[in-house]
Structures are given as structure tokens and as C-alpha cells.
């Protein structure tokens, strides 16, 4: 690790102003992505600004039509929250599958979304549930937030403060673990809104990060059942291809995981 200056602001505003003062500042939440990269000397921020201790960034609240999870809330707190388990059990389940207990007690939803790892779990839920990402400047819809591999709509220095999720008629997540990293080799989140709209998002599969899967959305809109996907064909074009999964294998996983997610959603 290179030398850096560590800050512990107590408000979002203070964090944002510290950011502008640093020559190459970085926010720190759970540190489960940033710290390993710093240890390997692949990142050398001048200033590290810890968001994890800012009270207004932690917690889960019910809203009129859903729930709001504040950015520095850990995966463990989401997985074990009664509010989430009641309103969106599939989201609590997704959080319970992230990494291992140590990771879940440190890693945060805000950090995961800001990082937008192409194999991370949360992006699938945020995109399929049509969630809204709130920042210290604005609200960004899920469809506008994810911009490809490790990139998002966030401006330099912009802080995610919370994510709000609308409740659904049905929702389910099925994840196939990457054998080594245990991120998603492919994970699929399926959701049906009270109005009957269907949104399906896959993570871990595409070369461009999390994506919607229109063919599956159409089939499920017509008939919400696993069997409805039997004859859907997923193209391997643009899917990742590596030693752990070829692109045709991942195309298969998109379909199979979607079927299992539908079954789980009931």
C-alpha cells in the first residue's frame, strides 16, 4: 500500500467537501474492493474518505410503495432485516449470498453499486426491480445508472446516499457461483410489478456488465412460469468467455437461472 491520508467525516456534505480538497480522493465504504486494490498497489488515492461511519448513510426504511436502503448499509444488515424480508424477500436472499460472513459484515450496497463489478449481485436486483439510486445531487433510475464494466452514471465525487426499491407482485433471484471467487458466474433476478410488467436482469454473464434479458421478459410476461422459458433461446454473443465458463455455457445459465428464479418467486 502507498501512503494515503485517511478521513472520517460525520456527514455527507463534509465527505463531499473533503473529496474536492484531495488531489485524488476516494470514498471508502466496506473497503472490500478498495482496500485489496490499494494493498496490491493498483490504486493510490491521495485521500481516503470513510463513508462507513456517517449515520445518515446507514439504515433501512419502509417507504410508501417499497423500501429504502441507505448506501453504507452492510449486506448482512440487508439479509437479516425484517423489513426487507417482508417487503422484498428475494432481495434479502440475494444479500445473503454475497461472499462470506466477513464480506457481508463489511461490504455495503453503495460500494457494490458504485463499483459495478460485472459479476456483482446487487446490480441484478437494482436493474430488475427498477430501483432508484439516490445521490447527494439527484436521483438516477436503474436503467440510466449502469454504464458497462465498472462504470456508472455517477459524477466524480458524487455520493450514493440510498437506493429505493418498489415492492413487486413477484420477485426471485437465482445465482450460480463462480467456482473460485463465488461472485456470480451468472445470476438472474426476475420481477413482476403489481401492474404486470416483467423485468429480468442478468449479472456475471455479459461483457458489458449487468443487462436486461428481453427474450425472457417477453416470455414471462406472456406466461409467468419456468416452463414458459423452455424454448427461449439466449444468444451467446457478447457474453463473457473465460476458463470458468464459455459464452455458450453462460447463455445456458441465463435461461436455467431465470427458470429457477421464477420457481423461487412462486
Amino acid at each position: 500500500m502507498y501512503q494515503t491520508t485517511y478521513h472520517r467525516p460525520s456527514s455527507v456534505d463534509e465527505a463531499a467537501s473533503l473529496f474536492t480538497k484531495g488531489s485524488d480522493a476516494k470514498y471508502l465504504a466496506g473497503g472490500h474492493t478498495l482496500i485489496p486494490v490499494m494493498k496490491q498497489r493498483l490504486a493510490s488515492p491521495s485521500d481516503v474518505i470513510d463513508l462507513g461511519k456517517i449515520k445518515e448513510l446507514v439504515g433501512i426504511e419502509p417507504t410508501g410503495d417499497g423500501i429504502m436502503i441507505k448506501a453504507a448499509t452492510t449486506h448482512h444488515d440487508v439479509a437479516s432485516s425484517e423489513t426487507v424480508q417482508k417487503a422484498l424477500p428475494a432481495l434479502a436472499y440475494l444479500a445473503s449470498l454475497i461472499g462470506d460472513p466477513a464480506v457481508r459484515h463489511r461490504g455495503t450496497i453503495g460500494g457494490s453499486l458504485a463499483n459495478n463489478d460485472p459479476a456483482a449481485d446487487y446490480p441484478a436486483a437494482v436493474l430488475a426491480l427498477g430501483a432508484t439510486v439516490k445521490t447527494n445531487k439527484r436521483s438516477i433510475s436503474a436503467d440510466d445508472f449502469f454504464k458497462g464494466l465498472f462504470s456508472t452514471a455517477l459524477d466524480d465525487g458524487e455520493i450514493i446516499t440510498a437506493v429505493s426499491f418498489p415492492v413487486q407482485a413477484k420477485a426471485g433471484y437465482a445465482k450460480f457461483n463462480h467456482p473460485a471467487s463465488r461472485f456470480a458466474l451468472t445470476g438472474v433476478f426476475v420481477a413482476k410489478t403489481p401492474a404486470g410488467d416483467v423485468r429480468v436482469a442478468a449479472t456475471g454473464a455479459s461483457q458489458d456488465g449487468v443487462m436486461r434479458v428481453p427474450a425472457i421478459e417477453a416470455a414471462l410476461k406472456a406466461n409467468w412460469s419456468a416452463a414458459a422459458l423452455d424454448n427461449v433461446k439466449i444468444s451467446a454473443d457478447g457474453l463473457m468467455n473465460d476458463i470458468h465458463g464459455t459464452s455458450d455455457y453462460r447463455a445456458n445459465l441465463i435461461k436455467v437461472m431465470a427458470q429457477r428464479a421464477v420457481t423461487a418467486a412462486g
Partner: peptide, 14 residues
């Protein structure tokens, strides 16, 4: 024998 390899062994390379 990763899942990817086993799946291919079952289904071929289609």
C-alpha cells in the same frame, strides 16, 4: 471437472 466442462460433456458444444 468444472460445471462448465461437465455441462459441455453432457450437451456437447451446441
Amino acid at each position: 471437472a468444472t460445471p462448465d466442462r461437465v455441462w459441455h460433456a453432457i450437451h456437447g458444444n451446441a
